[in-house]
Each structure stands twice: as structure tokens, then as C-alpha cells.
């Protein structure tokens, strides 16, 4: 596997460093050739920068990409926004030599050049495609058999599909495959592909943001899922933080929000507190208790199966 730089993005490092922790733990657990690269800035956020100054959006992203070109590594991001923004600019610059030349004439002044020759991936499809389901299954010590998990993809893990090429933009499967590989049921639900709505919180429309959070959380509460799985700090903010705000006002949902890397880390046998699960606003206590209980039951049957297998073919009447 080619070496890759991790693009953490602003939100994870500034607001949710525990998500960085669990990501590092699973990357190290799989012994993956990742590195931290100096010099990245904001990806930048499309809904902020592109809306105000498109040229600067393209230039800033191109500069970030030129850093991996210089280092000769791929890039993987545990943030859907960053993955999507970088991939979108990458694809636009490949389509327009004029724009590419314009960007490079400025980057030259700081000794950089945009080539866009290396892969830009989101962490979830990266695990699915590059690490692979068999290798993941081999690492699991404590799978989630019997647990019911609802996946929230996060729009920018899969769209725009012409730039990301990660999965089917309207019927994605890779995150589902990973959750199933961890032993859990991926609960199918009506609002599965609905946008989280966090963007509304950034344009002074907090009530509308809560409205969106509610749509999904209400359905998941009714379906009695054990947790929601996602891999985007912005969606995480929406469902963990805003759920907590609503719970304080008396609306109870009780849906713990778990990051892809936290779930994988737990299944690999890492301790919840080492993964930073105690930093969540919505506690995962019930989720962890049920999982422990089911795991206890599961190990009893595993033991029985082992005895049956051992006896096979050598039974002496």
C-alpha cells in the first residue's frame, strides 16, 4: 500500500480531538503507512469559501493538494467535508488547463505546483477498498453480533460522485458492508440518506438545524436502534451536540452517535475510554452494556462450536 497523509481538517482537531485519537488507534492497529504532513490549511469549506470567493476556494484546495504531490503520497481524510472539497477541486482542475495554469502561476511563488496525481480518499471507502473486509474481519476480537446500528453516510462521503467516485451516490453500500463485517445489523430506515442539516447552524438558522436533527433521531428512537454510526465531524456535531441540546430541553432520544473509527476500535478490543468515548455528550453506556452482555452470550456459543469442531472426525465411540 502506498504511503498516505492524513488530512484531519479543522473541526476534528479543534473540536473533537478524541476522534483523531480513535482514528490514529485503528490506523496503527492495522499498521497502515500513514503520516502527518506539515503545511495543510483549511480544505477549505465549500459552503463558506466557495460561496464568497470561488477563486480562493480553488486556490486554497489546490495548495493543500500540491503538498501531497510534493511529498509523493496519497491522502486520506476522516472528514467527509475535507474529502469532498479536495476531490471536487481536484476534478475541476483536471478539467480545465486554463484554471490549472492560473492556480499554478500563484503556487509557484511559494515553491509549489498542483499536479493532482495522487489519490484523495475518505477514510470509510478507503478501509473498504484498500484495507478490505477480510483483513478487517481478521482483526476483530469483539464483534457487534446482535447489535442494531443505523448508518448515517454524510452527504459528502459519496457526493458529488463524479469527483469522489467513492460509492453509489444514491444507494451507497460500502459503509453498510463495513458495519456488517463488524458483525452488526445495518438497520435500514426511511431517512437514511437525508442530509444531517448541520449547515443550517452555520447560517444563523439554529431552529431549522434542530428540525433536521429531529427528523432522523425520532425515526431512530422509534426503531430502537442501539446507535447511529457516521464518519463526519460536522454530522457528529449535529447529532451529538444538538441532540444533547434538545435533551436538555426535555426531548429525549437516547441515540448514541459513534464514529466509524470508534466502532472499529471497540471491535478490535480497544477500551472505550482509550478511544475517547467518554468525551461524547450523548453517553453510549447502554450500547456498551448490551454489547458486553451479547458478547458474553456469544463467547459461550463460540466455545461450544470450538468443542464441536475439535471433535469432528476424531470422535471415538
Amino acid at each position: 500500500m502506498k504511503d498516505f497523509a492524513i488530512f484531519w481538517g479543522c473541526t476534528i482537531q479543534a473540536r473533537f480531538p478524541f476522534l483523531e485519537k480513535s482514528t490514529r488507534m485503528v490506523l496503527e492497529g492495522f499498521n497502515l503507512p500513514y503520516r502527518d504532513l506539515d503545511g495543510f490549511t483549511c480544505c477549505p469549506e465549500k459552503s463558506l469559501v466557495n460561496n464568497i470567493d470561488r477563486g480562493l476556494w480553488v486556490l486554497t484546495a489546490a495548495r493543500n493538494i500540491s503538498l501531497i504531490d510534493k511529498a509523493g503520497v496519497d491522502l486520506v481524510s476522516p472528514c467527509t467535508g475535507c474529502a469532498s472539497n479536495l476531490a471536487t477541486v481536484n476534478s475541476e482542475l483536471h478539467l480545465s488547463n486554463k484554471e490549472k495554469d492560473k492556480v499554478n502561476s500563484i503556487l509557484k511563488e511559494v515553491g509549489l505546483e498542483f499536479k493532482g496525481k495522487n489519490k484523495l480518499r475518505h477514510l470509510v471507502p478507503f478501509f473498504h477498498d484498500e484495507v478490505g473486509i477480510p483483513a478487517i474481519k481478521n482483526k476483530l476480537l469483539k464483534p457487534f453480533n446482535g447489535m442494531r446500528i443505523a448508518i448515517h453516510y454524510g452527504c459528502h462521503m459519496i457526493r458529488p460522485s463524479h469527483a469522489l467516485k467513492n460509492d453509489d451516490p444514491l444507494d451507497p453500500q460500502k459503509f453498510d458492508n463495513l458495519i456488517r463485517a463488524m458483525g452488526a445489523e445495518s438497520v435500514q430506515y426511511m431517512t437514511k440518506l437525508l442530509c444531517c442539516g448541520q449547515g443550517l447552524d452555520r447560517v444563523d438558522q439554529h431552529e431549522n438545524a434542530l428540525h433536521f436533527a429531529r427528523l432522523k433521531l425520532k425515526e431512530l428512537k422509534a426503531l430502537k436502534v442501539d446507535a447511529m454510526a457516521l464518519c463526519c465531524p460536522s454530522c457528529y456535531l449535529q447529532f451529538d451536540n444538538n441532540q444533547n441540546l434538545m435533551e436538555k430541553e426535555g426531548e429525549k432520544f437516547g441515540v448514541p452517535i459513534l464514529y466509524f473509527t470508534e466502532l472499529l476500535g471497540l471491535a478490535m478490543g480497544y477500551k472505550p475510554e482509550d478511544l475517547g468515548l467518554d468525551s461524547h455528550r450523548i453517553e453510549a453506556t447502554e450500547f456498551l452494556a448490551k454489547w458486553e452482555r451479547l458478547h458474553g452470550e456469544l463467547s459461550r456459543t463460540t466455545d461450544l462450536n470450538r468443542q464441536l469442531e475439535e471433535g469432528f472426525g476424531i470422535a471415538q465411540p
Binding site: 479543534a14 478524541f18 502527518d36 503545511g39 495543510f40
Partner: peptide, 24 residues
């Protein structure tokens, strides 16, 4: 050049390495 700086005290508590340098 960013929308927030790495949270240094929380990083230390979690045992995370120092954040990579910004390209500001």
C-alpha cells in the same frame, strides 16, 4: 487559513502528538 486551531490541552490529555504545522 483555518476554521479553528488544534485544541492543545485536550490533545495532551488524550496523549496525542503535537499537531502538524499549519501552512498559514
Amino acid at each position: 487559513g483555518r476554521l479553528g486551531e488544534p485544541a492543545a490541552p485536550a490533545r495532551k490529555k488524550l496523549g496525542l502528538p503535537e499537531a502538524a504545522k499549519s501552512g498559514a
